[in-house]
Design a protein around this nucleic acid. Sequence first.
DNA 1: TTCTGACTGAAATTGATTTTTAGTCAATTT
DNA 2: AAATTGACTAAAAATCAATTTCAGTCAGAA
Lengths: 201, 201
Amino acid sequence: MRSSVKQKEVREAILDATDSLLSRYGYKKMTIDDLAKEVGIGKGSVYLHFTSKEEIVLSHIDRIIEQLKGKLAAIAGSDEKPEERLRKMLKTRVLHRFESVQHYTQNLNDLLAAIRPSFLARREDYFSQEARIFASVVEAGQQSGDFATGADAAEIAESMILATNSLLPFNLTVQELGARKDVEKKIRRLADLLLQGLCAR
Amino acid sequence: MRSSVKQKEVREAILDATDSLLSRYGYKKMTIDDLAKEVGIGKGSVYLHFTSKEEIVLSHIDRIIEQLKGKLAAIAGSDEKPEERLRKMLKTRVLHRFESVQHYTQNLNDLLAAIRPSFLARREDYFSQEARIFASVVEAGQQSGDFATGADAAEIAESMILATNSLLPFNLTVQELGARKDVEKKIRRLADLLLQGLCAR
DNA sequence: TTCTGACTGAAATTGATTTTTAGTCAATTT
DNA sequence: AAATTGACTAAAAATCAATTTCAGTCAGAA
């Protein structure tokens, strides 16, 4: 137990350092030597936790999504009206992703270029996982009578994910996406439009 | 007059050749010499119509958007129900863009990288121009009583553009976007969700 | 007046050489 | 015995000088 707790801590510390170095230097200029030094462990020890540099940054992104899924699940499980839950979830989805890379001074382009194929595959998984949480709330709303029934909850959830994707910092850098408050306004309006359609009439 | 018709033809021919070379070789490997040869004019003549290579490809993209705007305006001016017009417009927006680069064997990444700053600026303009056409239909629907009133038509139109942006071949190549019929299914479902919210209840 | 292609300088490419770095593993520490 | 390390290696990346390519120009041809 003791050592497994320690192991988790080291793994987390490596991912923390990854975020720090990635934001300062970008992918190519982030070296494993630097990373190990930042964590205060030997270079070889990094490879006790990860098999490659690519796996390190993919795990870093995984962690961001895990945190997001945590937030989404918390909102989904709250006792607000389904419409309000979905509204908050949509906003959270966009802003969590925005904030997670807001401090990056380096472009994310070199990162994306380096890990593109494996990242795109995972991205699809992220979408499904997020969609599942959204779908659970859509379904709840349908059963409670707040939302119109008949439509496929899973399909609606997928469309919601799709509709908000262009506000995520993926192709556009955070700089190009614009100021946070503009992004906030856009997601609010988009959420309004998306939710208007769900409510029972 | 005679010569201005000819001039337009040459300009169009240059843009046709641009599409052809771009799709076969990508941006960097498309040379102005090749382009002139393909059109059957001298290299210098290319510069009678455009000031730079960048302007040529930007004009090529402009032309795609102009064609799209023509299609959108045609649908917007048809006599169908506003809801049906918007549905077709959303589908057209996504599929026109998809088809316009479907034949590209080369990645669009090198093109985007080369013209990124000026392209991103224009992209915003494209969005506003398209949004204006959408807004006109939303407004018509509000006045005819088909759509609920109260909401700002321009804002709704912007959100519709935003929501469909992630299905455009921008960051993702056509290959990565998936098969045409999958894209078609996605835009259909998304359009359903977006339109459900507009209709008067 | 319209058009052209030889020309130019700047940028890209090449290939040979040096430097850096991802990943390994025998030795060391705990 | 198990965990950790950092010197080591092969491969990739950076460097640089020589060469080639190419965007854009302009004097002259049509």
